[in-house]
Design a protein around this nucleic acid. Sequence first.
DNA 1: CCTGCCATCCCACATTGATGTTAGGCGGGC
DNA 2: GCCCGCCTAACATCAATGTGGGATGGCAGG
Lengths: 221, 221
Amino acid sequence: MKKPKVAKAITVSLVEDDPGVRANLASLIDGTPGFKCQAAYPDGPSALKDIPGNRPDVVLMDINLPGMLGTECVRRLKTIAPDVPVLMLTVYDDSEQIFKSLMAGATGYLLKRTPKDKLLEAIREITSGGAPMSRQIARRVVQYFQDVSQIAATPQRAPEVETLTEREQQVLALLAKGHAYKEIADLLNIGFETVRTYVRTIYDKLHVHSRTEATLKYLGR
Amino acid sequence: MKKPKVAKAITVSLVEDDPGVRANLASLIDGTPGFKCQAAYPDGPSALKDIPGNRPDVVLMDINLPGMLGTECVRRLKTIAPDVPVLMLTVYDDSEQIFKSLMAGATGYLLKRTPKDKLLEAIREITSGGAPMSRQIARRVVQYFQDVSQIAATPQRAPEVETLTEREQQVLALLAKGHAYKEIADLLNIGFETVRTYVRTIYDKLHVHSRTEATLKYLGR
DNA sequence: CCTGCCATCCCACATTGATGTTAGGCGGGC
DNA sequence: GCCCGCCTAACATCAATGTGGGATGGCAGG
């Protein structure tokens, strides 16, 4: 044994349709101490068939595969080998591709123009529990959260609901859960007739004519 | 001028309640060429009052501020100075804090045990359009996407709904929109009584006893 | 052929819901 | 003091819904 220092090389499998890029990546990886390119596949199906047996430490996946898209390939791979981390490689920094990949189960996301040393570092990082991303990608991911919070912060319930009085909102909440008037009366310790009165004013204010319509407005559809 | 080489230092403002940590950070920043600690605040309110005028290139924000929480401080800061990127600093790598911060508008998120050189690199990165995160943080963010996709993919509607007949599901859909039996009958070109029959079997299958309960099951709450 | 499931329809009856009208008590503001 | 909004409540009436019976024809499988 030459170098017992390298306890174990990180094994990498490639999925990349371009033969040139594939060869380059393979030689980069094999040419770096501590890394080993275990396999290289030109398409999704062959990767899916082989990888579960190979169990590489990391999969580098091109996103723009012909036939089966990289995102779809990731999704299937994660169902048959959930433990294998996948690092997406792509020329696109387009949000949609990023989110599709992440939701499909990718653990990291790098642009192809990432320099070689950063790529190797990212492979190391992904095996040690990280989630390497190019800075552009990270920015988009963060941006996504801020966009989502705008949506999530607005439970989308019709604004009229806010104009209801405290008591009316309580009644509406119970109404929307499907409670009968009698039950609502008991729960709020008020009379049956009072509940009916509230229901009427709620309907007036919400411009609806049935419990279900009110419920939908309350829930924001 | 001593060093015209440094075109312009990156100006940093700190929000950190611990005087010791604050002093350490300030001296680290001021002691590094190319960085300038513009201001250091012990709490949220003073930062909010001052920062819009100062316009630092980056704000380093402790998440655990007494009084006003760091996340809340970020939220307000972003409303009055949306362009100033905020880098959260915290001892917690707890998911909830991370997402609150990101949704509030933080651009990066580092753990306090991040080494000094990485911290400085992160500050540089954030000013050049990145979104620096500790690797643990990045992992959690990626994990979040995968969790969310599971939820988003499952409209969460009660599984019983799937056991309903085609026709029953059509009726239920209209029922859930608040249509009266008569309207449903007209829309589906069937008789009023037929609708009532469907409603009965739907209720039976969903184990409910009212339109609203059925609607809630249909909508997955 | 018989059985089961689906889609369709009808009758009857009790309950609940939707809507109109009216009204007393209470706390604020003008 | 008077008016207004909110919480409370009662009576009346009709429409809509919930629930119990059956019934017919079609179509797939055994």
